[in-house]
Design a protein around this nucleic acid. Sequence first.
DNA 1: ATAAAAAAACAAATACGCCTGATTTAAACA
DNA 2: TGTTTAAATCAGGCGTATTTGTTTTTTTAT
Lengths: 231, 231
Amino acid sequence: MATDKSRQNKDAGVTGDEDISWQAQKSAMTRDRILDATISCFINLGYTNVTTARVASAAGVSRGAMLHHFPSKTELIQAAVEYLHGKLLEDYTRRVNAIPKTKKGRAHRRAGLDAYWEYLTGDLATVYHELCVAGRTDPELQAILRSSSARFDEHVHKTNSVLFEEWNDRGDRYLLAMDVTRFMMEGMAVGQLTVDRKKRIPQLLDYLGDRLEEIFKEGDSGAAGRHSSRN
Amino acid sequence: MATDKSRQNKDAGVTGDEDISWQAQKSAMTRDRILDATISCFINLGYTNVTTARVASAAGVSRGAMLHHFPSKTELIQAAVEYLHGKLLEDYTRRVNAIPKTKKGRAHRRAGLDAYWEYLTGDLATVYHELCVAGRTDPELQAILRSSSARFDEHVHKTNSVLFEEWNDRGDRYLLAMDVTRFMMEGMAVGQLTVDRKKRIPQLLDYLGDRLEEIFKEGDSGAAGRHSSRN
DNA sequence: ATAAAAAAACAAATACGCCTGATTTAAACA
DNA sequence: TGTTTAAATCAGGCGTATTTGTTTTTTTAT
């Protein structure tokens, strides 16, 4: 993977300084187009219904061309999963950064919850969840996911540290808040897969937000009022 | 294999009231054996890797015999899903009924949480979740699931009404408690699919139990009630 | 001109549904 | 009661369709 096609600049003095040949650019473009098409197929068809022919059709290339870039389906899936992780990170950070900087304190944290919810119910996270489920009985996919998810979790953790920076020195309470948030919202996202429960979602988000405030409030006023998280 | 020839009731006029022929019994037995094998294949192979040949092999019958009972794979899946729902109900009610009758009040409700957790992390619920995920891009499976899940949800609701009978006249608070419980625990169960988080699970269950008590305590004594949870 | 990139044809494997044949059971009948 | 007939249950093979990977051919860029 990561087949860098940027050689043949050895001594071609004629075209000289072009260390990235135009052919390599085009190749990389079709490669990305194929990966994008794979993600689209994940979204539209589901992981199990993805075939190399459908991906090639969606990408607008022939199967032969695709097999040239990805010699086997396994390598295609592997590259697509890494690509998906990158898009997940970009999606998540984009939503978080879209929170107005004017929001502070509780409103800021609540906006973080909403952003996380939008992220979780988006197509990318849905597909990622589907891949995790499929990985239960697909050791190959499981290995691919495991190798990529470590970096992903680390980056999310870092982003959350920024989001909840006023709290990330709380140790156990911080972990509890993260777990409660993640699990409850993931459960809500999964539950929405089957039945439409949009009406109760806002209420549940409100409730979750209140509980998070509570978790850290208790830690605050329990000992002494240090580190006021009011803003 | 397993051909128990227990049909010497041929002329035993004493038991003459057998209006169901022994052939029908045997047929129903192989039918159930096939359905059990299908569930096993769901568990061991995953929904997408289930083929008619594997099911027949696991059931110990030939594909021809299976096609006699289930003319197409779709009908097999449909019957297996209904069968799975029945087993899910039986599993859930068995765990709930296994709660010692000596437990009362808060301890009883907490035992209900544990039972629900054991149920959610069991093989059957895991497979059911997998089917729901696969149904996203499989309209046929989605229709099958929808037609069966209604009765299932209704029965679970009834069981929960017994479990939390002291609260099932609370309207909104009851719905909130059910949603919070279900979503958070489902999220925990899903999260455990990928990463092993067994260490934090008890703490989270404790937290969830406390929040449930809190929800109804507040509703009990208005805005002031913060007393210890009594029966 | 050469080598990469793209397209298309080809071969192998798998899975589903259908068909025929064999065995067992229930019923009909002398 | 014993025999025959019909129906159900079961076993296995065959053809078709789909998918994958390989190979061959054509196009394109350097």
